[in-house]
Computed example of a mutant assay.
Amino acid sequence: MTTIPLSHHRSHGEWVFTSGQIGRDADGTVPSAFGAQMRVAIQSLRANLEAAGASLDSVVKTTVYLKRQEDFAEMNEIYATYFDQPWPARSTVVAGMVRPELSFEIDAIAYRRPS
């Protein structure tokens, strides 16, 4: 895979910003099922947040990108298993993806408490 010019996460003070996380497994394969892609992407999001000293619980804003509007209900069901109330603020966008096999992408902004 060619290196792309981005960081998976960057921090500024107490704030952590993640790049969009996609549903690509560690071996580079992309599951065909929407739900599987979404779970892999959120697990990647979790790992990037934890590497930066944050967590899913500290997320204040997400942006979710869906390839198909028909996946919105399933996305909400799965999303609710990873995030708790008070829910992060969220924008959901139906958009084309950079690779045709991708159905889902998510990025986040989190607040990490100073140590």
Rank of each mutant, 00 (worst) to 15 (best):
M38H: 04
P100I: 13
V40R: 06
A52N: 03
A108K: 01
S58G: 08
P100H: 15
A108W: 09
R39Y: 04
E74M: 14
A51R: 11
I106L: 13
V98F: 06
A110Y: 05
D107I: 12
S11K: 07
L102I: 10
R99W: 15
V16T: 06
M97G: 09
S44Q: 10
A80G: 13
A110M: 05
P31N: 11
M38D: 02
P86F: 15
T81P: 00
T2E: 12
E14A: 11
A73W: 08
W87S: 13
G28V: 06
V94H: 07
V93Q: 15
T62K: 05
A41S: 03
G96L: 10
L66Y: 06
H12F: 14
N48D: 11
L45Q: 01
S7F: 13
T63F: 03
R112F: 08
E101Y: 14
A95D: 13
D25C: 12
A36C: 05
E77C: 05
S7V: 06
V59T: 13
R112H: 13
T29D: 00
P5K: 12
F34W: 07
Q43G: 06
V60F: 04
A33S: 09
R68K: 14
K61W: 13
P88Q: 11
A80T: 15
R99A: 12
S32L: 02
F104I: 11
R39A: 00
A41F: 02
Y111Q: 09
L56W: 07
F72A: 08
N76L: 14
A110V: 04
L49E: 02
V16S: 03
N76A: 11
F72V: 05
E101N: 12
Y111W: 15
G20M: 10
F104G: 09
H9G: 05
A108E: 05
I22V: 12
Y82M: 04
P5I: 03
S103M: 10
G20I: 09
A80K: 14
E70L: 13
S55I: 02
G35F: 03
A80H: 12
R112W: 11
A108S: 14
I106F: 06
S91D: 15
I42S: 02
P100F: 15
Q69S: 15
G35E: 15
T62Q: 10
R46F: 00
E14Q: 13
P88W: 14
